[in-house]
């Protein structure tokens, strides 16, 4: 079993994506040997009030209910977002996604904490993508910002009961999140999509292997499998999974067990 916690449907305004419909994404998952994938509509990041995108997501994934796991999007600045959250739960969403850099709120601010607290009470994990696209190529109409991992650390500290997943993050082992030793026993996760395991472009032996150090320093239980399909190739995450320096039990956790638990599957 392999669960991808980082996949998408829909349109990215600045570059054509392939395999971005439910049918084609499922075909891509088949080709990649991935059993299930967490998906949201990309458009929700750009909508001031994303609930209509959530409703469309629920409808569109229904024929693929055994493969695609819908995760709704909440904009904490949208009036009555609490109703959207309730609707997402009623429609079978297994998590909630936040986009601080697109909906323009502070990652560790009051609005954000309110949503995360509400999700924690409902046992829903919160996904905060570190970035959607490489900021070095961002279109002038795109904010082109990554989420500050120090602010995510503050958010985790403020809502310690929450489960927070930060897909598409890099760097990990020397990040302000992992450096917060007081947070290491809490429920937060990176994925395999972007960070390298064994060797990186660093002029320091101390920063040579990003995921590798995270694992050596006891962080393997903070790792999930994620690809960032269809923005990114699935191959990089699959290669990392194949060479990950962890034992069999930990590997099964990374492949699906932890994700299944978080998503109440």
């Amino acid at each position: 079993m392999l669960i991808d916690v980082n996949a998408w449907l829909g349109t990215w305004p600045f570059r054509s994506l392939r395999d971005n419909t439910p049918d084609t994404l499922v075909a891509r998952l088949d080709r990649s040997g991935i059993d299930k994938a967490v998906v949201s509509y990309i458009e929700a990041a750009f909508h001031r009030h994303p609930q209509s995108a959530n409703e469309r997501l629920a409808r569109d994934v229904e024929p693929h209910g055994d493969r695609l796991i819908p995760v709704g999007t909440i904009n904490p600045l949208s009036p009555h977002w609490e109703d959207d959250l309730t609707s997402c739960i009623d429609r079978g969403m297994k998590g909630i996604r936040l986009f601080p850099q697109y909906h323009n709120f502070q990652t560790d601010g009051t609005e954000s904490r309110s949503v995360v607290q509400a999700c924690a009470q409902c046992n829903l994990p919160v996904f905060i993508p570190h970035r959607l696209e490489d900021t070095r190529q961002h279109h002038w109409m795109d904010p082109g910002q990554s989420v500050d991992l120090a602010q995510i650390a503050n958010l985790i500290a403020a809502v310690p009961d929450a489960a927070i997943i930060i897909p598409n993050a890099r760097p990990l082992a020397r990040s302000p999140l992992w450096m917060r030793e007081d947070l290491r026993d809490l429920n937060w996760y990176f994925d395999l999509s972007l960070a390298e395991i064994h060797y990186g472009l660093h002029k320091s032996t101390n920063a040579m292997k990003d995921l590798g150090y995270l694992i050596e320093e006891g962080g393997a239980n903070h790792i999930l499998f994620g690809t960032h399909l269809p923005f990114s190739y699935a191959g990089p995450a699959l290669v990392k999974l194949a060479i990950l320096p962890v034992d069999e039990e930990t590997l099964e956790d990374i492949k699906y067990r932890t994700a299944a638990k978080l998503l109440s599957l």
């Binding site: 390298e196 060797y199 190739y233 191959g235 990089p236 990392k240 060479i243």
Partner: peptide, 12 residues
């Protein structure tokens, strides 16, 4: 330096 990433993108 993007070792697994570069191998993975060509394989995929």
């Amino acid at each position: 330096g993007t070792m697994a990433g570069s191998v993975g993108k060509v394989l995929d």
